[in-house]
Computed example of a mutant assay.
Amino acid sequence: MHDLWTYDRFEENAALGECAVSLDERQLALWRSAGGCVTPPPDDGRVAPPSGLLVALAMRGYLSIVEPRPPGNIHASSVLRWGMASVSVGEPLLVRVICLSKTIAKGRRWVSLLVKLVNRDDALVLSSELKMVWAA
């Protein structure tokens, strides 16, 4: 088990880690079972993954990289930015997490993290800047 991610462990502009995530038929089935829509494939038979599923995969990567987390963190905001890369089901994807900044304001510990989802060519699929009030 790793050490708890406390505010003091974060370093500004530092990579926190990366992990592979799976965009496969199993993930699409889970998405459908949760009520998510999947657009039928065009004539070429390739299913374009739903944007919400891509966000969920990026967050799954963040959760596996930055763990264990202290209880009581507050996810205050997210800013999503879509890259130009497209992906298809079965394609390997990678999640990278970077600490952008950390500050203390009004007695609260704020951490800003950048979560990037990239395809096999290292092209940006999406990025999400997470602003968190860190509990410990």
Rank of each mutant, 00 (worst) to 15 (best):
19 C>R: 06
112 S>Q: 14
56 A>Y: 10
120 R>E: 12
57 L>N: 00
5 W>V: 00
131 K>D: 11
71 P>N: 06
57 L>G: 02
132 M>T: 14
76 A>C: 09
23 L>K: 06
36 G>I: 08
39 T>P: 02
48 A>I: 15
115 V>Y: 06
96 R>G: 04
120 R>V: 13
84 M>V: 15
122 D>T: 03
91 E>M: 05
107 G>A: 06
107 G>R: 05
100 L>S: 11
63 L>K: 11
110 W>C: 09
131 K>Q: 11
93 L>E: 08
49 P>L: 04
120 R>Q: 12
70 P>E: 03
65 I>A: 00
61 G>F: 06
49 P>S: 04
45 G>I: 02
13 N>E: 13
65 I>G: 08
11 E>L: 04
53 L>K: 01
41 P>K: 03
95 V>L: 05
136 A>W: 13
62 Y>H: 07
43 D>Q: 14
3 D>V: 12
81 R>C: 08
87 V>R: 00
61 G>K: 07
75 H>C: 10
72 G>I: 01
55 V>T: 04
113 L>Q: 01
66 V>R: 04
100 L>K: 12
30 L>V: 09
17 G>M: 05
124 L>E: 08
2 H>M: 15
20 A>G: 12
111 V>K: 03
121 D>Y: 13
75 H>P: 10
129 E>G: 10
118 V>E: 01
11 E>M: 06
95 V>F: 03
43 D>C: 11
13 N>T: 13
124 L>T: 02
94 L>I: 07
73 N>W: 14
31 W>P: 07
38 V>P: 07
125 V>W: 01
47 V>T: 02
104 I>A: 10
12 E>M: 15
115 V>C: 01
63 L>G: 15
2 H>F: 15
105 A>Y: 14
85 A>Y: 02
135 A>T: 12
125 V>S: 00
6 T>R: 09
135 A>Y: 14
62 Y>K: 08
126 L>Y: 02
56 A>P: 11
49 P>A: 03
37 C>K: 15
80 L>C: 12
55 V>L: 03
40 P>V: 13
52 G>R: 00
110 W>N: 11
